[in-house]
């Protein structure tokens, strides 16, 4: 169980990026965080990853407080961030250096086959297309089998077709070990396709506005009327979140769940 309790962040330059963000995320749940720019989405994700420390509040994973990168928490960034001097296979095995070489090779080979890039094992990152590189980044993050996988706008730099392809692929991979996924995005379609729960944030300072549960079975049909309904719901919420006249929702009344404070 990943618990965020009143997480806040003020940067040294005085920017108040995030205020009292609380949520509980169950193992295996897929949560999408969506919101306008400057609403603290990425700040929140970096706090969960342990890359930046929260100014206030705590992030805990199974009762362990997260203050630095954790073995059970992986992250995929907007850019693949592959190490250009390592082959594709070595990039995927980067986080497995503690394992014996033969075990590592075996796991890397499996991961490569799983993301459909078995023929690229010896290629350099510069020889990959954007979509292929992001697949390698996904494989690299998944191969140490994290309990929580964070994704910071992972597909936003890709073309629409590749993006859809990778969204489906991500769900497929998620199904293998069912890690918790926390996805920051500004693509409503992506949020509704992937998430069990969409957290809409509002900016200045970044805070939670509304939580929307997506009660759709997977695989989801992007063209079904129900899907459209949920999309409209999220879009409306986004619009309202940017309207200064709409007050912050009283957390206890939203969604009627105990995931709020």
């Amino acid at each position: 169980m990943l618990a965020l309790e009143k997480v806040g962040k003020t940067y040294p330059n005085g920017v108040h990026a995030l205020e009292r963000f609380s949520a509980e995320i169950k193992p295996g749940e897929i949560v999408a965080i969506i919101g306008g720019s400057g609403c603290g989405k990425s700040t929140l994700l970096r706090a969960i990853a342990g890359l930046d420390r929260a100014s206030t509040g705590t992030v805990t994973l199974d009762n362990a407080v997260i203050t630095a990168p954790h073995a059970k928490i992986g992250i995929i960034f907007q850019e693949p961030r592959l190490l250009p001097w390592l082959s594709v296979a070595d990039n995927i095995g980067f986080g497995l250096s503690d394992l014996p070489a033969d075990v590592r090779r075996e796991k890397v080979a499996q991961a490569l086959a799983r993301v459909g890039l078995a023929d690229k094992a010896k290629a350099w990152p510069r020889e990959l297309s954007g979509g292929q590189a992001q697949r390698v980044a996904i494989a690299r993050a998944l191969v140490p089998q994290p309990e929580v996988l964070l994704l910071d706008e992972p597909f936003s730099a890709l073309d629409a077709f590749t993006r859809r392809d990778l969204q489906d692929h991500l769900l497929d991979l998620w199904n293998d070990t069912r890690p918790t996924l926390i996805l920051v995005t500004h693509d409503v379609d992506e949020a509704v396709v992937l998430a069990d729960r969409v957290l809409v944030m509002r900016p200045r300072p970044g805070r939670l506005f509304e939580a929307i549960r997506i009660n759709l079975t997977r695989p989801r049909d992007r063209s079904s009327p129900l899907f459209e309904n949920f999309k409209r719901h999220v879009l409306t919420s986004l619009d309202r979140s940017l309207d200064r006249n709409v007050p912050d929702a009283d957390p206890k009344t939203v969604a009627g769940e105990a995931m709020w404070w």
């Binding site: 990853a49 890359l51 990168p69 954790h70 961030r81 980067f94 986080g95």
Partner: peptide
Amino acid sequence: KIVEVGRIFRLSGPA
């Protein structure tokens, strides 16, 4: 950004 990849995989200083 590349250094952050090292941090995510919890590399020690020498590593």
